[in-house]
């Protein structure tokens, strides 16, 4: 499979993966493009990997985690918001109503990535550990912590709904 065939077949999957980890469509497309550009630069090496798609997904995930470690990575709104020039995100309406989607935004980047790889990409803990360069026990601990946080958030929301 040459690069163009791979990108045509799996590119959109990468954008979706980028969206599930970042929650931002613009960033998802950038992450997919960064991953594809890096893969294209070393395509021979990517092709030789056991699973080229996992190799490219690793690039995307690591790019996202590197991005979140930067000091400038914030979602704080600017002081002067020009609503006339904001670009509507077509994904926003669909997912905004989902409490669980909102709760995911409160997790750390690594916790969210682990959950996405486990429950969206259906990877086992060993594969996730290999992809992130950590131990399987760390994956289990991170996932457990993230699930506990989500459960707590959902329970507190349900209590809030019962209040007058």
């Amino acid at each position: 499979m040459d690069f163009e065939e791979y990108a045509s077949a799996r590119g959109q999957e990468l954008v979706r993966l980028g969206f599930t980890v970042s929650g931002d469509y613009q960033r998802a497309e950038d992450l997919a493009q960064i991953a594809l550009m890096q893969a294209f630069r070393s395509w021979r090496k990517v092709q030789k990997a056991d699973d080229p798609h996992t190799y490219v997904r690793r690039i995307l995930i690591n790019s996202y985690l590197s991005m979140t470690r930067r000091r400038s990575f914030t979602e704080a709104p600017a002081a002067e918001i020009d609503t006339d020039h904001t670009v509507p995100d077509p994904a926003t309406d669909i997912v905004n109503s989902d409490d669980l989607w909102r709760a995911l935004a409160t997790l750390s980047a690594r916790e969210r990535v682990v959950l996405v790889l486990r429950y969206y990409q259906d990877m086992d803990d060993r594969t996730i550990a290999d992809l992130l360069g950590i131990k399987p026990s760390s994956v289990r601990a991170t996932a457990s912590r993230a699930l506990a946080a989500l459960r707590k958030t959902r329970q507190s929301h349900r209590v809030d709904e019962r209040l007058p």
Binding site: F3, E4, Y6, A7, S8, G11, Q12, L14, V15, R16, L17, F19, T20, G23, Y25, A28, E29, A32, Q33, L36, P90, A91, I94, V95, D98, W101, Y120
Partner: peptide, 13 residues
């Protein structure tokens, strides 16, 4: 559901 909501990104390759 979130992944399905992502619009098609044109000409990624």
């Amino acid at each position: 559901r979130a992944a399905a909501s992502v619009p098609l990104a044109p000409d990624l390759a």
